[in-house]
């Protein structure tokens, strides 16, 4: 097979740049990352691309191929035969160089999520049917493609107002853990910006691990927050039954205030 592919790769940094064309011979089963490695070895040793495992486990090689957020290691090149393959860095994050972006904002907000707080130390008795739901979120490889595609972050520069879909999945992972006793509702409403999400499900479309972030993480979290803050019957109940400071619902309130 001696088909030649044309890759149009973004070269540049914070000061600007443009796409440059490179030619790569197509091999059976080749992925876009293989093609970029070919370019590095043959034409542009300083072409910046972030990658680690090349097995879709680590989530390092996120970029945009022909306009779609993708893992470069999982994107087969043969699907683009007859087209120019445009490869650009993730749009929602500040560029460092070429295809590498500054994703540090994700780590900054992750720190603020109130951590898992078990009722008792392990070993836990938990049944598979009870953990199936949270194990879905454990599939996340932190590629941040969902953050890249989320229009709050991508088009409205909302990094400071909304933690983004990845972090909602992380909160859900702990919040729905059968043994967790922390209460993250106030944190979700006031700090993490959960109400900013208007459930367009774009994050679900790009998730390489097929996590149904919107339906299984974000909507249930929104329901928890709504139950707590906007349920009229509960509001009435709270008006007449005000618990003593810090008594109920237990550890929850002080964890939230720590965040």
């Amino acid at each position: 097979m001696s088909e030649e592919m044309v890759l149009s790769i973004y070269r540049g940094d914070a000061n600007g740049g443009q796409e440059e064309e490179y030619r790569v011979p197509l091999e059976t089963g080749m992925v876009v990352l293989d093609a970029l490695h070919y370019v590095q070895a043959e034409a542009a040793p300083d072409l910046a691309v972030r990658w680690n495992c090349k097995a879709a486990h680590c989530g390092s090689c996120s970029a945009e191929v022909n306009g779609r957020p993708r893992l470069l290691c999982k994107t087969r090149l043969d699907q683009y035969v007859g087209q120019v393959v445009h490869i650009r860095p993730m749009h929602a994050f500040p560029i460092i160089k070429d295809l590498v972006t500054d994703v540090s904002s994700n780590y900054r907000v992750a720190k603020q999520i109130p951590a898992f707080q078990p009722r008792t130390p392990a070993p836990f008795t938990m049944y598979q049917r009870d953990v199936d739901r949270v194990q879905e979120f454990h599939r996340c490889i932190e590629c941040f493609l969902c953050q890249d595609t989320c229009h709050v972050l991508r088009n409205h520069g909302g990094t400071d107002q909304y933690f983004g879909p990845r972090m909602m999945a992380k909160v859900a992972e702990w919040e729905m853990h059968p043994m967790d006793v922390a209460d993250r509702r106030q944190f979700l409403k006031d700090v993490a910006g959960l109400p900013m999400c208007n459930v367009t499900r774009c994050c679900v479309d790009v998730c390489p691990e097929h996590i149904v972030i919107t339906d299984n993480a974000i909507i249930p979290l929104k329901e928890r927050v709504a139950d707590q803050y906007w349920d009229p019957i509960r509001a009435l109940f709270r008006r007449f039954h005000r618990p003593a400071e810090g008594a109920v619902p237990g550890a929850g309130s002080d964890v939230s205030s720590r965040a």
Binding site: A115, F116, A122, P123, M126, Q128, V131, Q135, H177
Partner: peptide, 12 residues
């Protein structure tokens, strides 16, 4: 077991 206390969820 310590990992389980820290939130790791192994198959059951």
């Amino acid at each position: 077991l310590e990992l389980e206390s820290w939130g790791a969820v192994f198959d059951r």
